[in-house]
Every structure is written in structure tokens, then in C-alpha cells.
Design a protein around this nucleic acid. Structure first.
Lengths: 364, 364
DNA sequence: CTGAAAGCGCTTACAG
DNA sequence: CTGAAAGCGCTTACAG
């Protein structure tokens, strides 16, 4: 690799000082440097293919133009990558780069990640969980402002962006109710993920609001086989058969469809099925295509990054957003402390939109 | 955020020069600095929680300890994340950090990515494709040694690590043959992905080697619904029904299972089914669990990163590995140029291991 | 054994 | 309008 051109090279070629080069190339030329020299400098920079040495700039400016991202399980889930994509897009648009470290949920690695990121002088920090969960960041987060995505500080000391799980679940359930379903079963996820309880709650709320008495959700799990087993049970067991099933997620819905097939039931004619997640690789391609709820992964990454960037721009040490960063004001769950603690900071709920496809029909 | 301690702070507290601090903390103390002073310095560093300013170190050493990673679609696929994980693990273990930029296959973004990474002074470069494809990197790759993962330079100027698709496909097909299947259908992916042809080739090779005449692979696609449609056709069409189906990937296999269910066929009793990819979220949980082939995503990331790191350590400007970096020597496809071109560099084939589960049984 | 000096590449007061 | 100087925090010859 050939040595990169430095500002000195440009200065020499243009016959000026490095000061002049810096001024012009950073847009402070006007009124300071003679127009002809400006042209000379720009030409020289072009010729040499000059680009400032980011490390030197960073050392001088005390800004790295890098945002540290700590994730807990980057590899596990397909759509979770969208969170990173949203964050990356927002960062790149603002001239920032992402330094991503995955901790694999290992506390040691997490501590080290904070250290490394701090030493790399990141300007801000984003912590992203791959599935919704509470997360208490170190009390004094190093490395500038910090924001949480798809996780939340139980004490709300750090701003967070999370999906409105309850709302999404309410929405799909209502969709079923509008189609005329009255006996709806729910196959829930395991309670090691907080999303399971939230989705159950949404289901119950929608049923109750419609004057229907909800069946107790069946605890199953998040995988295809769990959905299969639960569906086998509910669809063969004694008692009346439900006309629709709300699944914990799209994969469980695959299991339900497989079970329906094995039982000779046709979806949606004999049974309506809905999922959750809008899994890119699954939901649109199931036969029939699955009606489900989309998780705002990308939005979480984007919004969270915007808030970080905004705080960085403010020169703030805290991740507290001054004014809303994004254009569209997201739903805010007023997370006021029990005693109105002024240290609390907003936890923003992002909509989980209903995605209507072909797996729902009126009950027979 | 409180100001970080500098080496000057440590020097002052310990009553020595910054030189001494640097020497001791970098392990060059012995024989240079009096033992008592060494202790003093270490103590001071501890007290102040000193860690060297990475940016300053980088500027001075002309090494950033960062490896740039350019990906083309980080978000699309779940298991693809494993590639990143493997790369990250290898990098972190060697004290390197990853600067990841996703280009979304936009050539403009790609060009910009190289620029940005070069300006950030990355010590080396990894280019990772999310699905196997040819990829010609810029002729003079900037930013130190470069290696390709899950993609390959048609001219083999840059080392590459790719899955042995043909071998994997041969292996599953043989598995079916060993179970006694003689009439095996293949539902292939669309040919926009090179993996499709490779997997077809493996299928054909295995059949031919066993003295069986292979059916022509059916062109379908990579999604559930394509597998479903193709299965419907092959399983209802005129002519003899195959006793087993080789699918382009796991998702297509889901479609096949769905179709089998709709047709009243039981897998594996009435029909054996195998997939490809060993999709974490799908294959182990299908009912029955899917016999498939695992893609060495993690290994590709790991091995490729090791080669980059090795080349960096060599101080080499080219990504040409001197000696093999990893312990286990991977299968090497001798990609010698047609005329023995000495500029050619190895393209390494990583094994795609067969993963036996429950979706295969002897034909009835 | 120890510390003053130079230099990595840049930008920003400051003096002409 | 222009350039010499200082300084970001570090490490590495070099002179004592």
C-alpha cells in the first residue's frame, strides 16, 4: 500500500502552508484565503487524492466520529440485524461510523467492551439487545451519551426505544375479532422472555375489551416444534375447538400450520392463524402467507442512534435528549418515577404494525 | 464524563517521566527502569485507572488495531451473522476491533466504504458476502491485506474462504442413497445464486457415482412457498413419485413439508426430505427435525480473519498468507491459474458437514 | 537507569 | 490574507 498523502504534501504542491490547506478543505477558506490559492489547494488535494488522516483529526479534535455499539447476540436472529442496519444508516448519514462489539451476554465481555470503547474514544454509545429485555447499564456510562434499543433500564436513567408489544398483540387479536372469531386460543412463548407476558397481556386486553372471555394462554415456546405440540394438544383435546390461534411468534405459527396439515385442517378455512415478528424469511412465504405483527427493529436502531447523535452534537455527557431527535414523535410511555423522580428519562414505545396477509378468514 | 487520565498524570503521580511510564506499561521496563520505580508506576496507573488513549497510540504507531469489514447484506440472513461472530472472535482474541460497514450491495456505498476504512487507517480488510458469490475487489485494495469470506475473486488475486457446496450436496444425497432411495428429486434454488448450481452438481455427482440416473433438478427458489409449489407439482404430477426430495435450502424444505401435510403424506414415512443451511431457527425444530447440511459461516469468518491478522502481523501489504494461519489445515482447492500464473492465491474450501436428524427413513 | 526531545498528522489561536 | 507555533497523547531513539 502506497503512503497516503498528508496535508503537508498538499501544501507543498499548492505552494502554501498546511494552515491554508486545513482552512480551505474544512470550508473555512472564505475571507481567510485568497480565492486563487483556494483553487490551487483544491486542485492539489484532488491530484494527490488527499483525504485527512482520521486518526490525527480525532486526536486533535477529541472526537472520534465513531459510535460504540454493544450488542448481546448479534448472530441469533435474522431480523435483529435490521436494528443494526437502522443504527448504521442513521450514523453514516451523520458522518459517523459504528464500532460494534458483541458480548454474547457474557458479563466479562460486556465490561471489557465498555473499556475498549472508552479507550477508542467513541463519541457515544448504543446498547442493543437482540430480544427485548431489561438491562441496567453501568451507573456511570463511559464514552459519552448512551441510549438503549430493544431493552430498557429498569430505573429509566438511560433513554430507551422498545417495541409496543402489548399494542401489537392487541392489534392482531382485534383483527381476528373483527373477522368474527369469538373462541381464540393463544399459544404463548416461554416466560424467560418478557415479550411473552406482554403479548399475552395484549391478547387478554383485546378479548376483554370485546366482551369475550379469553382462554388462558398455553405456555409453549418460541420454536416450530413447540407450536406444533401445543397446536396438536389444543386441536385434538376435549372441549370445543378454537376457530383461531394467536401464536407467540412466526416460528410457532409454522408449527401450528404443520400440525393443522397433519390433522387434515386447512388454514385459514378451518382455522385462522396469526404470528408475531413478521420474520422476513418466513411470514411472507408460508402457505398461506402469514398475517402477523411487525417488530420495529429498524426503527429502534434508527431512533436510538438519532438520539445518541443528537446528544453528541449537544456536547452532552448524558444521553438525555434535549429535544426529540427524529421528525415523527414516537409514542412515549411516560415513565415518571413513582415519586416523580426528575432523574428519569423517557422510555419510548415504537409501534408494532399489523401486517395483514392470508392466514385469517371468518370462522366457519 | 470525567476526563481520562493521561500518561502524564501517571508520570506526575509516580514522580517519573512519561518515558518511564510508557516503557513500564508496555513491558519494556525490565533492565531499563529501576524495580522500585516500576512498582510506583504500576500503582499510579492503577490508582488513576489509566488506559492508553487508543487514538494517540494509533497515530504514533501507525497501526489502528482495527480491521475493516465490508459486508453486503448484514441483515438478511440469520446464520450469516455467525460469519461476523467468527471474525469478531478471532479479531478480539488478537486484540483487534472490527469496523463494520454494510454496503447493501450498492456500488457507491462500497466505494465509499473503502475510502472511509482507508482513512480510518484500518490495518486490514475483510470482505464478507452474505450469500456465496463471485466478487472482484478493487485491483489495489487499500488499507492493508484483504481477505474474502463467502465470496471469491474470479481471478484469485485475493485469498478467499468459501463453503464446499458441491461436497455438502454430495454428502446429503449419499445419505439418502445409503438409506436405499433410488428415485430422488431435487428442488433447486434459482440460479441467481451460484450455490444453486453447485448444489445441483453435487446431487448429480452423487447419483451418478451410485449408478443412478438423476432426475433433472426442478428450478424453484429459496423460499417456503417455492418449495411448496414445487413439491405440489412433483408429488401430484403424472409419473412415478420420488421417495425422497433434496431441497435447495431449509426454507424450501419447510414448504415441502407443508405440501406433504396438505397431501396427506407423512414425513419421513411416506417421503424423505433433506435441506441445506442448517438454519438455526428452522432445521432443528421442524417436525420431524430436518436432516440437512451445515454451512461453515462461523469458520469462514474465523479463518478469513486469521489470515488477515496473520498478514498484518507479517507487515505484509498483500493479503497473501505466508504460512497457514489456522491450526487445522482446511481443504484447499488448488486454484492455480490456467497458465500457472504465480499471482494466484488460494481459494479455500471449507467443509459443509452433514447434520443427520429425523426427516429421512428408508423408502416404503 | 533516566528524562528531554522529536514526531505521528492534524487544526486552531495568534502574530505578522 | 498568511504562516509559524503549539498542542492533542503517545512512543521511541538519543544524550546524559
Amino acid at each position: 500500500m502506497q503512503r497516503k498523502a498528508t496535508s503537508k504534501d498538499v501544501a507543498d504542491l499548492a505552494g502554501v502552508s498546511r494552515t491554508a490547506v486545513s482552512l480551505v478543505l474544512n470550508g473555512h477558506g472564505e475571507g481567510n484565503i485568497a480565492p486563487e490559492k483556494q483553487a490551487l489547494i483544491r486542485a492539489a488535494a484532488r491530484t494527490l487524492n488527499y483525504a485527512p488522516h482520521a486518526v490525527a483529526v480525532s486526536l486533535q479534535s477529541r472526537r472520534s466520529s465513531m459510535i460504540g455499539v454493544i450488542t448481546d447476540q448479534i448472530a441469533t436472529s435474522a431480523h435483529a440485524g435490521m436494528l443494526l442496519r437502522g443504527a448504521s444508516d442513521a450514523a453514516v448519514a451523520a458522518g459517523y461510523l459504528l464500532l460494534v462489539i458483541d458480548t454474547q451476554r457474557d458479563p466479562d465481555q460486556e465490561v471489557r467492551a465498555y473499556d475498549v470503547l472508552r479507550n477508542q474514544q467513541v463519541d457515544g454509545l448504543l446498547f442493543a439487545a437482540m430480544s427485548l429485555r431489561p438491562y441496567a447499564p453501568p451507573s456511570l456510562v463511559p464514552g459519552g451519551p448512551a441510549v438503549l434499543a430493544n431493552c430498557y433500564d429498569p430505573d429509566d436513567r438511560v433513554p430507551a426505544f422498545v417495541p409496543d408489544e402489548i399494542g401489537g398483540s392487541r392489534a392482531v387479536t382485534n383483527h381476528l375479532i373483527e373477522f368474527g372469531h369469538r373462541d381464540i386460543a393463544m399459544i404463548s412463548g416461554s416466560h424467560d422472555a418478557v415479550a411473552a407476558e406482554l403479548r399475552e397481556q395484549g391478547f387478554r386486553e383485546a378479548m376483554t375489551a370485546a366482551g369475550l372471555s379469553p382462554r388462558a394462554p398455553m405456555l409453549a415456546g418460541w420454536e416450530i416444534d413447540k407450536g406444533y405440540a401445543a397446536a396438536m394438544q389444543v386441536l385434538t383435546g376435549p372441549g370445543p375447538l378454537p376457530t383461531a390461534i394467536v401464536c407467540a411468534n412466526d416460528r410457532a405459527a409454522v408449527g401450528v400450520m404443520l400440525a393443522a396439515g397433519a390433522l387434515g385442517l386447512s388454514v385459514p378455512r378451518d382455522l385462522s392463524v396469526v404470528g408475531y415478528d413478521d420474520d422476513d424469511n418466513v411470514a411472507p412465504y408460508l402457505v398461506p402467507a402469514l398475517t402477523t405483527v411487525r417488530l420495529p427493529h429498524r426503527e429502534m436502531g434508527e431512533e436510538a442512534m438519532r438520539v445518541v447523535l443528537h446528544a453528541v452534537a449537544e456536547g452532552g455527557g448524558s444521553g438525555r435528549p434535549g429535544e426529540p431527535a427524529g421528525a415523527e414523535p414516537a409514542t412515549v410511555e411516560s415513565a415518571a418515577g413513582p415519586d416523580g423522580d426528575p432523574e428519569r428519562v423517557p422510555r419510548t414505545l415504537l409501534e408494532c404494525p399489523l401486517v395483514v396477509r392470508d392466514s385469517v378468514a371468518p370462522p366457519r
